[in-house]
């Protein structure tokens, strides 16, 4: 998988130590990881394992303290300046004073696209996340699931090839989450983007990913990488097949091997 396509993210011996009042905390240690184009990679692990920190290092929201990392062959900072990725946060983080369409258009405004181009892209991405007809609504007039879909549309609007998602569906209920998972897979199949997805739900990780990176805490490190053998077409009921359950069992074993259940 990684041999044929050029690496979108390549990290080697990556480490990050936070200086806190209680002394240094090693958030990431010796992370080696290569993500190829078009992959859907999930990062799973208990809280404190550094999965969000790793995503933030890729996004240049944190600076590593050791090792090297490249995004699209550039440093993360250059990649950020070139708007190489879209980032979806745990909460929708929509601006309440902007309508949905102007929220989605925010990155386009900052990039200085023409009004016509902005309108065209806003319409296209809102179609993509099934939010057509809600352009003029304000975020606080929509449900949590719709808000998160709008924030995904905002990350897709400027057409970056890489999508970084930090527990985007963590705050939503099971039914909405299933629905959005299905839509996300469909979107990924249609756009052929590379997606890095942080989660702490095993079924979600197995259902979505082509590869699952299992991480463990103290210090945050990669303890296992599991290739998924599931086909690219995945209906929701694939989660009852023995193949799915076998992969889920491997992920659970990997989490246990990293002593994640100690505390």
């Amino acid at each position: 998988m990684t041999g044929t396509s050029p690496a979108v993210v390549a990290a080697s011996r990556l480490g990050l130590t936070f200086q806190t009042n209680d002394g240094p905390v090693q958030a990431l240690s010796n992370v080696d990881l290569t993500i190829g184009k078009g992959e859907f990679v999930s990062f799973i692990g208990p809280s404190g394992c550094g999965k969000t920190t790793l995503l933030r290092v890729i996004a240049d929201l944190e600076k590593p303290t050791s090792g090297t990392i490249s995004v699209n062959g550039m440093t993360p900072e250059q990649a950020r300046e070139k708007r190489a990725y879209g980032y979806v946060f745990q909460a929708a983080a929509l601006f309440p004073w902007r309508t949905i369409e102007r929220n989605v258009g925010l990155p386009l405004e900052i990039m200085g696209l023409s009004k016509a181009e902005q309108a065209e892209r806003i319409k296209r991405t809102l179609d993509l996340v099934n939010l057509s007809g809600f352009e003029k609504k304000y975020p606080w007039q929509l449900s949590g699931g719709m808000q998160q879909r709008a924030s995904i549309a905002r990350a897709l609007a400027f057409d970056a090839d890489l999508l970084l998602m930090d527990e985007p569906f963590g705050a939503l209920d099971e039914i909405v989450r299933d629905h959005l998972n299905e839509q996300l897979l469909e979107l990924w199949g249609r756009t052929n983007k590379t997606i890095c997805f942080v989660t702490h739900s095993i079924p979600e990780a197995v259902y979505l990913s082509t590869r699952i990176v299992v991480m463990s805490p103290r210090p945050g490190r990669v303890s296992d990488i599991i290739e998924s053998t599931l086909p690219k077409e995945r209906p929701l009921d694939i989660r009852e097949t023995p193949e799915f359950l076998a992969i889920a069992a491997r992920v659970r074993d990997g989490l246990r091997a990293g002593h994640s259940y100690d505390d």
Partner: peptide, 14 residues
């Protein structure tokens, strides 16, 4: 303004 919103603006290289 929240940290998340400011990080968001940073990802847009604003």
């Amino acid at each position: 303004s929240g940290h998340m919103e400011r990080d968001l603006m940073r990802t847009y290289a604003s």
